[in-house]
Amino acid sequence: MMELVCPAGTPAALRAAVDAGAHSVYCGFADETNARNFPGLNFSPDDMAQAVAYAHARGAKVLVAINTFPRAGAEPIWHRALSCAEQSGVDAVILADIGLLAHAAARHPKLRRHLSVQAAAANPDAINLYAEAFGVRRVVLPRVLTVEEISAINREVEVETEVFVFGGLCVMAEGRCSLSSYATGQSPNMNGVCSPAEHVAYSEEGHELAARLGGFTIHRTPKGAPAPYPTLCKGCFTSGPQTGHIFEDPVSLDATRLIPRLAKAGVSALKIEGRQRSRSYVAQVVRAFRAAVEAQAAGDPMPEGALARLTEGQAATTGAYAKRWR
């Protein structure tokens, strides 16, 4: 059966994920070492140790994302996170930075290493380099590849591949996107936050909901229409004579129906996005996808999803898996 890798932003969400059937849960420490460094989220070292005990007692694994890029001179923060992860007994760490990968391979050789989507390794040469140089065992592929491209990559690499199948859709080459920095000075790569909440403002203006990021208006949503997050990649802008979503609509990824093709393409693990979401979201989405991977393993048709209302834009796309970006 394909491995189902599920998100948890809090210990309560982790328990919900495990109870709902997650094979693995990924989470992070409450600091800038992980790419979901949001207010009120994440795990203290004690939380992590308890989370690992809870998951292992029920046959689930815990993967820790330490997937931001360390600031020069502040490397000890990231090194401590690695030590803490190993002491907590986690099953793997998810890393993006080459320097941190080298440090982990040298100082924590028994700690299994996965390559984060933040490393944006999107071709066999890059993936094989990470595998050979740093002993990476699994690569999380960027959300910019078609199923055919994933299949071609898997034919040329030895390591496992993991792909996103549900949740917030990052449409850029992750780890390389600086759009959030232009508006707020903070990015997921360096600070662990895309469109940080400190820079987000919503206001009801007449019959519209205005969503601003760093003072820039990203959306004006009419009454009754689904409210989006104000991320620049899904903003509504005017360019020449055209007004619209220049990069991508505010929709979320749902690749349920592509799971059989992803399995055939050699993908080992399916990842659900949403560490910033509630335990209610985690429970509902994990349960639905556990049913889907069980159906795939049994050769049954994919179950019909009813998760759209949980997603940004209340609409879903199969993202790059089944199309090319405009």
Binding site: P39, G40, K223, P226, A227, R309, Q314
Partner: peptide
């Protein structure tokens, strides 16, 4: 889910968004 209630406009937020998120 709180975000889903926000997407659907059942909940609206104003002011310090980071504090509300926390």
């Amino acid at each position: 889910d709180g975000d889903a209630l926000f997407f659907s406009r059942d909940l609206t937020v104003e002011g310090d968004t980071a504090a509300l998120l926390a």
